[in-house]
């Protein structure tokens, strides 16, 4: 063996994998960049323009419409809360049918496939479809958010159920407990925390979404931002943006304090939006 050579810390296989990943990413990156054929017309002029707009938004903020803006914000929050509660409740029950360890294989696979397809379509597109059918207003907004959240939470919850120890289920069955009782006493207790965390995470996401639903006409504060920016009223838009930021920021802070972080669950596996 070559004693002067570098001693590798990670395994050879891992190093090859990382090298491939790195090179692949670089190639993909520059290829994509080339294909996009980006144009920087205006260049610095635009940056200066952006800064002057930002100045108008932040320093000359116009609070005169605060009542409308706050009402719209309340509507956004309501949409997010309602969609989260309904989807979490329904998803909770359906996830038992979707979990492979407590359900029939056919049922579980079917539920998972449907959930995967629903999740693959972005929330805003679901909302757009509902708006197309039901017309403008918060109602299609709730439905659109609900649809996607539901599919997302079915997947997340059923994953938690699948992680429940087989012994729990076995022990309850052996006492003569029915399926429903086994679920309630053997499966539900260990997943409670995960269910709450996932719901909290989804609420954070839904809140962000609910503030942009207005762009497709589904109510909430997004409509205000859309309207003010359309007439280049940066002073009023500044206030709307501030409220959007505060909505999302305060919830993030609150959940951080309550230690409802499920970031780790995400890395393990999941997908959002």
């Amino acid at each position: 063996m070559n004693t002067t050579g570098k001693i590798s810390i990670i395994s050879e296989k891992q190093r090859v994998l990382y090298t491939l990943l790195f090179i692949g990413t670089l190639v993909l990156y520059f290829f994509s960049l080339y294909q996009l054929k980006l144009e920087f017309k205006g260049g610095w002029e635009n940056v200066l323009k952006a800064l002057s707009f930002a100045k108008r938004m932040l320093l000359h903020m116009d609070l005169s419409d605060w009542k409308d803006v706050l009402t719209a914000a309340m509507e956004s929050i309501s949409i997010a809360v309602l969609a989260t509660i309904i989807s979490a409740t329904l998803a909770f029950f359906v996830s038992f049918a979707a979990a492979s360890n407590v359900s029939l294989r056919v049922v579980s696979n079917l539920c998972k496939a449907v959930a995967a397809v629903v999740r693959a379509v972005p929330t805003l597109i679901w909302t757009l479809i509902f708006v197309a059918y039901l017309g403008l207003g918060p109602f299609p907004g709730v439905l659109g958010l609900f649809f996607h959240s539901f599919a997302y939470l079915v997947k997340a919850f059923s994953q938690s159920i699948e992680e429940v120890k087989e012994g729990n289920i076995e022990a309850l069955k052996a006492t003569g407990a029915s399926w429903v009782q086994t679920m309630a006493k053997g499966v539900y207790p260990p997943i409670t925390t995960a269910v709450i965390s996932w719901t909290a995470l989804r609420f954070e996401f839904n809140l962000g979404m609910s503030s942009i639903l207005g762009f497709v006409g589904a109510g909430g504060i997004g409509m205000e931002l859309s309207n003010t920016m359309r007439i280049f009223d940066f002073e009023k838009a500044g206030f709307v943006v501030l409220i959007i930021f505060l909505m999302s920021f305060s919830v993030e802070m609150l959940f951080h304090k309550l230690k409802l972080n499920v970031d780790k669950c995400i890395v393990k596996d999941s997908s959002n939006s």
Partner: peptide
Amino acid sequence: HYNLIDRL
């Protein structure tokens, strides 16, 4: 492995 429900 006892198979008790831990959180109860």
